[in-house]
Design a protein around this nucleic acid. Sequence first.
RNA 1: GGAGAAGUACCCAAGUGGUGAAGGGGCUCCCCUGCUAAGGGAGUAGGUUGGGUGACUGGCGCGAGGGUUCAAAUCCCUCCUUCUCCGCCA
Length: 423
Amino acid sequence: MLDIRIIRENPQLVKDAMKKRNKDMDALVDEVLAIDVQRRELTVKLDQLKQEQNAASREIPKIKKEGGDISAIMARMNEIKETVKSGDVQLSELEAKQQKIMYEFPNIPNPTIPVGKDDSDNVEIRRWGEPTAFDFEPKAHWDIGADLGILDPETAAKVTGARFHFYKAAGARLERAIINFFLNTHTEHGYTEVFPPFMVNRASMTGTGQLPKFEEDAFRLEREDYFLIPTAEVPVTNMHRSDILEGAQLPISYCAYSACFRAEAGSAGRDTRGLIRQHQFNKVELVKFADPETSYDELEKLTNDAERVLQLLGLPHRVVCLCSGDIGFSSAKTYDIEVWMPSYGRYVEISSCSNFEDFQARRAAIRFKRTPADKAQLVHTLNGSGVAVGRTVAAILENYQNADGSVTVPEVLRPYMGTDIIK
RNA sequence: GGAGAAGUACCCAAGUGGUGAAGGGGCUCCCCUGCUAAGGGAGUAGGUUGGGUGACUGGCGCGAGGGUUCAAAUCCCUCCUUCUCCGCCA
């Protein structure tokens, strides 16, 4: 959520920022400003009446005690009561209206990111490794998985439906090995491991920005108002919802494994084969709470930490800075890490590392005091995949495949796999 | 899922309708004491929204949200969480 004060003080800045996202929200900016004026005028009026009520409440018992007549003051109080009551109703309507609009605004893109229309305007920052070369015709991971008997979408389709997978034997073990490898590596680099709930309540989904705008993207439970998490970002960021953290604690860094659930509404027909786009997938997530003064240093570090696991796995990848038209709703700046996927013949997103600045913190009321004497201020929240597990399996199967159909296990995974080859 | 109890500040805790939410511990500062211990004094309800150029000043805050009342921590309703017991279960 944006700060209403920014809109009050510099509406043009907000309008321009939205245009960088290819969104014309001029009318909404003007509307929210008009509501804000009304709301504050009414607030002043009601506060004065409430002040009068409070003063009278102190007088009434005094007068009664002295045996005086309170009928005049009571008449006045009855009159105020009605005005306050209807005023409060009106006020909460205005507040709701204002908040509804405020929830519509995406974050303001950071000035350092490229301005652009869509993913074609994203800027490559660096590459690591070279696209894998083969002296045979490489197969796609879904074919490798089927031939080795380690990936089974057909059975999952029977048991559940489309866009689910069974992993079997070495496939299941590979998934588990990668999760452990990721968590161990991040833990060694200062992240505290947490294992979160996979369902969260509405307040948490609102805190990180999935709601109210993107409810159709999430799976919601029928009997409770709970949502299956689309990413561990949601429960882990919301761990500190409504907290006031100590400045000395920052940055707080967590890593978390979770299953992730996405409805993939609007993705029909895209990436229908293999592990790239599933309703349920595993991910290890990195989450940071940082001092605003250093949050962009933390974004660089977090991105490096995510890249590290790909480097240790020997998977060629590149880092891309998303342009203003391509960043997510809550993000101010995002680096995507893309891994080389031979079957696609291009780099495919495997991690997304973002600084949300105070956008989530304002929604979720996550604050800190730099020193105990300071006033509480909003933290900056960051997160990034460290990294998506299913896509890592796909990348390993494809990049490490051999001419005979077997797959070499990357060296760092061998202790976890208990073998150096899958065949 | 059923029954009962409870949620007040960093911690413990008083407060069942009426003029600013007791008290204690802890913490901070000051005084005294050669040091320590003990003692004395002061401060310590955060936070959030508003108004004012400003010194200042108002509203809301006792788990959350509604309601009754001139007036709610206190009465009523709904929900959440915790504890005890029962049931169920990995």
